[in-house]
Design a protein around this nucleic acid. Structure first.
Lengths: 339, 339
DNA sequence: TTGTAGGCGTTATCAT
DNA sequence: ATGATAACGCCTACAA
């Protein structure tokens, strides 16, 4: 038989008390008779009482929930979300995750939806389509706490947690150079995204440091996508300036590149080197296994969560923080050429 | 400057109307002067009014949100969740996803948390640890709508959507037999899970149909886990009864098995065949590419979502449905031995 | 230490 | 067609 969940009213009635007393007992406020409190807690336990979060949130104008908006849930991002989750849990917050599926429209809709009193604030990584930040301006006006991570939003006043992408591009490229590769191509991702540009910058920096002249023909901007990478690599390999190594700014692209390389019958790492980015677990399973730049994804997420909580609790004193975490290189067979 | 979001009160005041009139206009109920309505909608638009969901849910005792509880978010399950999402969206529902991380404790906690008026019901796939279903009994008593999918809960009265796992085990095994393999081993997953047993049953059925006698020594029960599968395979390969083919009931296990096979220097598919389960995209990238049983994951999720909505709307007439969807085999190099 | 009463934003019932 | 009012479950001055 259908039984409605118990409320503080029910408890109050059974114990001949007022709802306020019950409310107080349940919330551990002082000023309450220990015995009364014991009785209330016992009955609550017995009835399996659970406070109605809607009512509580409505009253307190606070939901203890963080809205997390991400472009997708690939390996790296879902690890970051786990980090956010952990930080949230420690502070008694819940996390709601929404995927924008890389679509600007869905990003806007999701933000608006969640804003309808469902969340206290946002932790965001933007979609690759997102150029305008109008929908976030609304948040700023209402002083809704917000932290951006991974892919940051240009020109927005908010704390951010990101990877040192330039460093990532740098160490990958320098490693290839140290392994004796000289004509290093880069599959550099969409130009619209900041992470692409930073990794590209790191690539250039490494070349410069080692006095290798930069050749624009070895640069391909393409989508974060295995197929694109495959075709781009095919083209590179059959061009006159055939590279002797490829640095791709994502692992998916690295896989695409590897397929094209195998197709062409080139030996890896002897004839051509390869380094990816993200260090997805499957990379170790390929033959040859693929080197990659690893992000501290979990830590990035956790830090974003912590900063959010911190700023949420200190609404008055909320200075903007910019955390930049360091990547590290994971060297495997695809780039290990003993010289 | 901080500005509180507008409410129907604000609109009512500005237009010198009562809140009830405003509420009606906003909800498209009849009995309202078209012009009044137009005015209200205009102002609402101008103020960027968004109804407060908390208040609405509290009043209506309905949140239009489905709680989805899953053991993890691997490829198959996250595809299923996308299916649920689509069905929910079509019906104006929102989805909240919680991972139990294969932990019984977290499953219980998550269920209780969400139950605190956050969701109208649940769509659930249990964790591998879950044996008791006490925490779901509470839901049943309160007549909270619930649909189970993928991994179902034993002895519970609820609609379910699952794959025909026995059929999956059958077609994988029969395919190997047709390719001339005769000593077919199975890495069969934890015994606690229904899906393990069903796939195992399908395996046995195929052997029987083709008059191959079942050999218990070719059966290994192990965790859904690449490393376990690796070691299990190593053992199988060095035993006297070395199998000439392996059917693993997950792709992760197939990868583990393949690594062990490569380690041993066996040729695939000539000397040993391999078929996995789930058809994760990366399987096509290995050399040799790995055959696998494919589930209609998206469809399973979408159907679970649809059934949920249906039953939620027809609370009176809610008979229990059991949908079983068919798998299909995806044949690749690892099992293609031309005979 | 406990109780009373008002209100969070919305919807629903009953008048007008 | 519109308005007044109570209620959803909870919290919190304020009063007792």
């Amino acid at each position: 038989m259908q039984s409605k969940p118990p409320t503080i009213k029910d408890i109050a009635k059974k114990l001949h008390l007022s709802v306020s007393t019950v409310s107080r007992a349940l919330r551990n406020v002082p000023d309450i008779n220990p015995e009364t409190k014991r009785n209330i807690l016992e009955l609550a336990e017995e009835l399996n009482y659970q406070p109605n979060k809607l009512a509580r949130s409505l009253r307190q104008n606070q939901t203890n929930t963080i809205g997390v908006i991400v472009p997708n849930l690939d390996y790296v991002i879902s690890t970051m979300v786990k980090g956010i989750d952990e930080a949230a849990l420690e502070a008694g917050f819940t996390v709601i995750v929404c995927q924008s599926n890389e679509s600007f429209g869905r990003e806007v809709v999701n933000t608006r939806r969640m804003l309808n009193s469902l969340v206290d604030g946002f932790i965001i990584s933007i979609s690759s389509e997102t150029k305008s930040n109008e929908h976030f301006k609304v948040l700023q006006e209402r002083e809704i706490p917000m932290v951006v991570f991974d892919r940051v939003i240009p020109d927005i006043l908010a704390s951010s947690v990101i990877l040192d992408n330039e460093e990532g591009g740098f160490i990958a490229t320098e490693h290839l150079i140290e392994q004796g590769y000289r004509k290093i191509a880069i599959l550099a991702g969409p130009k619209t995204l900041g992470i692409s540009n930073s990794r590209f910058k790191g690539y250039q920096k490494a070349l410069k440091k080692h006095n290798i002249k930069f050749d624009p023909e070895l640069v391909v901007h393409c989508d974060f996508n295995q197929d694109f990478a495959f075709f781009a690599t095919e083209e590179l390999l059959s061009s006159k300036k055939r590279p002797d190594a490829i640095f791709t700014i994502s692992d998916r692209m690295a896989i695409g590149a590897m397929l094209a390389i195998k197709n062409k019958g080139l030996k890896m790492p002897e004839e051509i080197g390869l380094v990816g980015f993200n260090n997805e677990p499957s990379l170790a399973l390929f033959t040859p296994s693929i080197s990659s730049v690893e992000q501290p994804s979990f830590e990035i997420g956790k830090m974003a969560g912590k900063i959010f909580i911190e700023q949420f609790l200190n609404t008055s004193f909320s200075d903007i923080r910019e955390e930049v975490l360091k990547p590290k290189l994971c060297i495997r067979e695809s780039s290990m050429r003993k010289i």
